[in-house]
């Protein structure tokens, strides 16, 4: 039973890495969001695999929450936003071109591996290289998400980058340990909230202030015309 799990995990890990690479490379925002949803799905599957192996209910719940929030709600919401904003592609790249960014990611992968190998080796519970690899991939994806944030101009793309980072953290935690359920749930709620705020703000940055408020609150215009009675000297 152990061998297929290990192989399956390895395959999933490579796929997650591949999705991260795609997110770094892609310009089309819609496919970016789709790739992200796929990546989240992969992480959820991985959680399921671990659940099958260890039988911890937390992992099952995590997988469910993941599928609901990250595979379905967030991508859906972002897709809506993208349609409303009517921005299809994020063309500009800052600092790093996609190719360079990938090369940098490779180096990061190497560094993370070098830094984490001795650390993981210190922990008694993990004797297989799988854990080291998993931890490395998780942390590397966090870094790759960060690369997405600073190489892209559009706030939506940045949000995708941020979400990728989150996936990396979850991946990392999946491999090392399982956190208490309450904490896990809270974290996810938290992150969703931040993502929502950021996405909402993404409106603002690409539209004028009046449009922004009009879009957010259709009644604001009427109230704005009302002036306070107080006069200042």
């Amino acid at each position: 039973m152990i061998l297929p799990t290990e192989q399956l995990t390895q395959i999933l890990m490579v796929m997650v890495l591949a999705t991260a690479a795609i997110i770094i490379m892609k310009r089309d925002i819609r496919s970016l969001i789709k790739t992200y949803a796929f990546q989240s799905l992969l992480v959820a599957v991985m959680a399921l695999v671990f659940y099958i192996e260890t039988g911890a209910v937390t992992l099952l719940l995590l997988a469910v929450v993941f599928i609901i929030s990250k595979v379905w709600i967030i991508p859906h919401f972002m897709g809506k936003v993208q349609q409303k904003l009517n921005i299809k592609r994020d063309i500009k790249f800052h600092f790093l071109s996609p190719i360079t960014a990938l090369i940098v990611s490779l180096f990061i992968l190497l560094f993370v591996y070098l830094a984490f190998t001795p650390l993981i080796a210190e922990l008694n519970r993990f004797n297989s290289t799988l854990f080291t690899l998993g931890a490395t991939v998780g942390v590397s994806i966090v870094f790759m998400g960060m690369i997405v944030i600073f190489t892209r101009k559009q706030t939506l793309t940045n949000v995708v980058g941020y979400l990728t980072m989150e996936n990396g953290v979850v991946l990392f935690s999946l491999f090392l340990t399982e956190l208490p359920m309450l904490i896990e749930i809270l974290i996810i709620i938290d992150l969703i909230m931040l993502t929502l705020i950021a996405t909402v703000l993404a409106f603002g940055i690409d539209s004028t202030i009046e449009e922004f408020h009009a879009r957010l609150n259709p009644f604001s215009r009427e109230q704005q015309t009302k002036k306070p009675e107080e006069t200042t000297q």
């Binding site: 800052h94 101009k153 940045n158």
Partner: peptide
Amino acid sequence: DVDLHVAYGF
């Protein structure tokens, strides 16, 4: 802008 500073952090 944001990108530059995230890059610094990176």
